[in-house]
């Protein structure tokens, strides 16, 4: 059986596409993927999503979107798509050995948090190294932690971690943050947060002890290295688009983001659309992802009516 539309990914772009497509009676099929809900699942308060004057929790916002998409008849599959075949229509999407067919596809696989890429980071994951401040901050009550990074997520995580940790140190490679002004000001005014500028974490210590005991820092200006005792390490150093399975199939920029036509979510393959962070390295907001998700659904609807 061939479906009208398959949506790959379950962040704000995917759910918005599903809501629009379901309301247009396209009966979309949505694959939730390996991180259901996407990046918002590991954030706390979303303060800039219109319609929530008091803010809304990231996971809660995504649960609401899912409920809304379901209400209009979106079929949800809690699997990870393993491969795609866009060479002929209907397009093929394979998950868990099962192949699904559809005449149009919306790719909203988003982006995932980048890791530091250290061997010691892998070994100490869950033992002081965390990929989710909101999940694990609780375990660092009265402890000292570092947050690596200089963007909005580094600021947000640092602020959040001060609820638990006695001291939070931000380690940043440059001499200024890229974060928005309001976030920077909050962090710099917080007495529990210190900043180490122009420094990089080159190793995490404690592999022999089975838990994080410190980090090795390198000064980017002088090249000097030093060790700093610490209990926890959180990285917020940006994101990479989840586009591995589209390599060689769709056009990407040098960083792996999918390329779409100007003012459109259309890729070079008619019927295949891309929405959200997977095609947006510039804005990367929940609301812009939702916006392009809506565009993709409308474009898919038009495409389907024309073929």
């Amino acid at each position: 059986m061939s479906h009208n539309l398959i949506i790959i990914g379950s962040g704000p772009a995917g759910w918005t596409a599903a809501i629009y497509a379901a309301r247009a009676e396209l009966k979309p099929l949505l694959f939730e993927g390996s991180e259901p809900g996407g990046q918002l699942i590991t954030t706390t308060d979303v303060e800039n999503f219109p319609g929530f004057p008091e803010g809304v929790l990231g996971p809660e916002l995504m649960e609401k979107c899912k409920t809304q998409a379901k209400r209009f008849g979106t079929e949800i599959i809690s699997e990870v798509v393993d491969s795609v075949d866009f060479s002929t229509r209907p397009f093929k999407v394979t998950a868990k050995g099962e192949t699904y067919e559809a005449n149009s596809i919306i790719i909203s696989t988003g982006a995932s948090a980048r890791r530091l890429g250290l061997e010691s980071e892998k070994k100490l994951y869950g033992k002081g190294v965390s990929a989710c401040a909101t999940c694990d901050g609780f375990f660092f009550k009265g402890k000292n932690v570092i947050v690596v990074g200089g963007g909005d997520s580094a600021m947000e995580e640092s602020g959040f971690l001060t609820k638990f940790a006695s001291k939070v140190t931000i380690v940043h490679r440059r001499d200024a943050f890229r974060a928005s002004k309001i976030m920077q000001e909050r962090v710099l005014a917080n007495p529990k947060i210190d900043v180490i500028w122009n420094s990089d974490v080159i190793d995490i210590l404690g592999v022999e002890d089975g838990k994080v005991t410190g980090v090795r820092l390198k000064d980017m200006v002088t090249g000097e290295e030093r060790e700093m005792p610490i209990d926890g390490v959180f990285a917020a150093i940006g994101h990479d688009p989840n586009t591995k399975m589209f390599q060689g199939k769709l056009e990407m920029d040098e960083r792996g983001y999918l390329v779409t036509n100007p003012d459109s979510t259309a890729t070079k393959i008619p019927g295949v659309f891309a929405a959200g962070d997977v095609q947006d390295s510039k804005y990367r907001q929940a609301i812009t992802a939702a916006g392009t998700g809506c565009m993709a659904a409308l474009e898919a609807e038009r495409f389907l009516s024309e073929v």
Partner: peptide, 14 residues
């Protein structure tokens, strides 16, 4: 798990 952990909540139905 904990109620404030998004990934934990996503695992709950499983």
């Amino acid at each position: 798990w904990a109620p404030w952990c998004g990934p934990c909540r996503a695992m709950n139905p499983i």
